[in-house]
């Protein structure tokens, strides 16, 4: 049985902001299926009581003093911008439903 459907791959592409083509979708579905079946092996390990590792260094409380450091100039900040206006980054119109918190 396939681990992932073509529809799921299309959904993942949307979530990932990738405008994949129809042909690409077919290729990706096949490849992701192979990879997912292989990586699903992690499920064979009995690990219910094992704590997950999110960081490989055992550090805690790495905190910075609240002291102002130098900023970029607006020119530097905008130097890589594909488009800018009024010293701001310009973007195309935002769809209403994109509004987030």
């Amino acid at each position: 049985m396939a681990a992932i459907s073509r529809e799921e791959v299309a959904h993942l592409a949307r979530l990932s902001r990738l405008a994949v083509t129809e042909e690409e979708l077919d290729t990706l579905a096949g490849q992701l299926d192979v990879i997912l079946q292989a990586v699903a092996q992690v499920g064979e390990v009995t690990a219910a009581d094992i704590p997950p590792t999110s960081h490989s260094v055992p550090l805690t409380n790495v905190l910075r003093d609240d002291v102002v450091a130098s900023c970029l100039t607006p020119e530097e900040a905008l130097s890589g911008a594909p488009d800018a206006a009024e010293q701001r980054f310009r973007v195309p119109r935002i769809l209403d439903e994109d509004v987030a918190s």
Partner: peptide, 15 residues
């Protein structure tokens, strides 16, 4: 849980 979470547990076991 089945993928990322489980992989991180396996990471603990490898360490």
């Amino acid at each position: 849980d089945a993928y990322y979470g489980q992989a991180q547990k396996v990471r603990t076991l490898i360490s």
